[in-house]
């Protein structure tokens, strides 16, 4: 990895829709050869940012360069340099795997022997050599996902954008996609990855940009980000609320000495959920927190004291959990 040369440079990039400011002047650089993740909750502005970097959306203000080309002035050059794996499978179900790859290869300007060679690569990459003539609509979700990635690699891009590629898929397919990202990066490909899964960003990324409400609120390696929260511990509690006033719990817990942030999530309709507490000394606040929850009518079923991680960073910076 070349740790110095940025292949993507984003300068005060902004996008508004009427009164709504979806991206509020973000700036960051992605170095050649790294995996850079944009981590943030749904609606944080990750997809809008990646859409502007793909020249799919015109920025309202600011600029960005990809492989030295401006997204404003040289969109076709930018598009030649990037491959984009969309969040949802974007393939033609009535066409075969091979026909899809041929079509997308042609859209990237490939033809003749080169096209044939890259289609063969795509089928091999997706593990679909024996299903090349099968209709995509008949494929499993995992096969479609692999083909979806293969279609974005046909023209050998210098940068690969992956926009939440693991949303709504089974664990096995997710594992395979994460391994694929690492393999592609090991082969020299720069990857810009967006996700709202902290674990994915931690596992994959050389550096991480945390986005919230259209702003880049933190940027660095996992270790650098963890240091920003200082000695903060995170208490993760699994709770049965038993009719307790969930709305009132954050204020109640923030009243405990040493607690810096609290987030309460209901996981489903069963009345269970999770409580995240950021505190300067997790062990010290633990008994008081359990007592407070108990008095409020909630029952703690499981608890975990975590080392500072990206969840803690996000909680520390925003006062909310990533999945809120």
């Amino acid at each position: 990895m070349d740790a110095t040369r940025p292949i993507i440079e984003v300068n005060s990039l902004r996008k508004t829709y009427g009164d709504l400011e979806a991206v509020k002047g973000v700036s960051f650089a992605v170095r050649q050869g790294e995996i850079f993740s944009l981590l943030g909750p749904n609606g944080a502005g990750k997809t809008t940012t990646i859409s502007m970097l793909s020249c799919l959306l015109a920025p309202t203000a600011g600029n960005a360069t990809v492989a030295g080309h401006s997204v404003r002035e040289q969109p076709l050059k930018v598009k030649e340099s990037i491959g984009v794996v969309p969040q949802d499978v974007a393939l033609y179900g009535e066409m075969s795997a091979q026909e899809n790859l041929v079509f997308w290869g042609r859209m990237y300007g490939l033809s003749g022997a080169r096209l044939k060679e890259r289609v063969a690569f795509g089928l091999s990459f997706a593990g679909l050599e024996d299903r090349a003539r099968g209709k995509v609509s008949a494929f499993s979700g995992g096969m479609k996902r692999r083909l979806n990635i293969a279609a974005s690699l046909l023209h050998e891009p210098r940068v690969l954008y992956m926009d939440e590629p693991t949303v709504g898929i089974d664990p096995q397919t997710r594992r395979r996609i994460l391994d694929t990202v690492k393999e592609l990066n090991a082969a020299g490909l720069t990857v810009l990855y967006t996700t709202h899964y902290m674990e994915e960003a931690e596992e994959l990324s050389h550096r991480i940009g945390i986005v919230d409400h259209g702003e880049l609120i933190a940027l660095g390696t996992r270790e650098e980000l963890a240091r920003t929260v200082g000695e903060t511990d995170v208490l993760r509690l699994e709770v049965s609320f038993n009719g307790a006033d969930r709305e009132g719990l954050p204020a109640l817990l923030r009243g405990i000495d040493g607690v810096t942030a609290v987030t309460v999530n209901a996981t489903d309709g069963s009345g269970d959920g999770g409580v995240l507490i950021a505190a300067s000394d997790g062990e010290a606040v633990l008994p008081a927190a359990v007592m407070a929850l108990s008095r409020a009518g909630a029952h703690v079923r499981r608890l975990e004291l975590q080392e500072p991680n990206l969840e803690a960073v996000f909680l520390h910076l925003t006062g909310r959990g990533l999945r809120e």
Binding site: S54, C55, L56, P75, L76, K77, K79, E80, I82, V84, P86, D88, V89, A90, L91, Y92, W104, M107, Y108, G109, A151
Partner: peptide
């Protein structure tokens, strides 16, 4: 709706 239009617009095609 199915995302292939956006995908086409991301290729070097105006």
């Amino acid at each position: 709706r199915q995302g292939t239009l956006a995908r086409m617009l991301i290729t070097p095609t105006s």
